[in-house]
Amino acid sequence: MSPPPARVVTDLSTPEAVRAAYAAHGDELYRLSLRALGDQGGAQDAVQETFLRAWRARETYDVGRASLRTWLFQIARNVVVDAQRARGSRPWLRALADHPTLEEAAPAVPDGWEEQLRRILVEDALRRLGEDHRRALAETYLADRPYPEVAAELGIPESTLRSRVFYGLKALRVVMEEMEVRP
Rank of each mutant, 00 (worst) to 15 (best):
Gln44Phe: 04
Gly26Arg: 02
Ala21Val: 09
Ala46Thr: 04
Asn78Gly: 15
Thr70Asp: 05
Ala6His: 08
Gly64Leu: 04
Thr10Val: 13
Arg65Ala: 02
Pro157Ile: 07
Asp82Phe: 03
Ala23Val: 14
Val18Asn: 01
Leu68Pro: 05
Glu103Met: 13
Trp113Ser: 06
Glu103Gly: 06
Ala86Lys: 14
Ser159Ala: 14
Leu117Arg: 01
Ala23Leu: 15
Asp124Ala: 08
Leu52Glu: 15
Gly38Val: 13
Ser67Gly: 11
Arg135Tyr: 10
Ala106Val: 07
Arg135Thr: 15
Pro110Phe: 05
Lys170Glu: 13
Leu172Cys: 03
Arg58Pro: 07
Glu28Lys: 08
Leu34Asn: 00
Leu137Phe: 00
Asp124Gly: 07
Arg134Pro: 06
Leu52Tyr: 15
Arg119Lys: 05
Arg31Pro: 06
Leu93Asn: 03
Ala54Arg: 01
Pro4His: 12
Val181Gly: 00
Ala57Lys: 13
Leu117Ser: 00
Ala138Tyr: 14
Phe51Met: 04
Arg127Met: 08
Arg87Met: 14
Asp132Ser: 08
Ala106Arg: 10
Thr10Pro: 12
His133Val: 03
Asn78Pro: 01
Leu32Trp: 14
His25Met: 01
Thr160Lys: 11
Arg118Asp: 05
Met176Ile: 02
Gly155Ser: 09
Tyr61Gly: 01
Pro91Asn: 04
Val47Tyr: 01
Trp55Thr: 10
Leu32Asn: 10
Leu102Cys: 15
Pro100Met: 06
Ala108Ile: 02
Val181Thr: 08
Ala76Arg: 11
Ala66His: 09
Ala21Ile: 13
Pro91Trp: 04
Arg56Cys: 05
Gly26Met: 07
Pro107Gly: 02
Ser163Glu: 09
Ala105Gln: 04
Val63Lys: 12
Ala43Asn: 01
Arg145Val: 09
Pro3Leu: 03
Gln74Leu: 13
Asp111Gly: 09
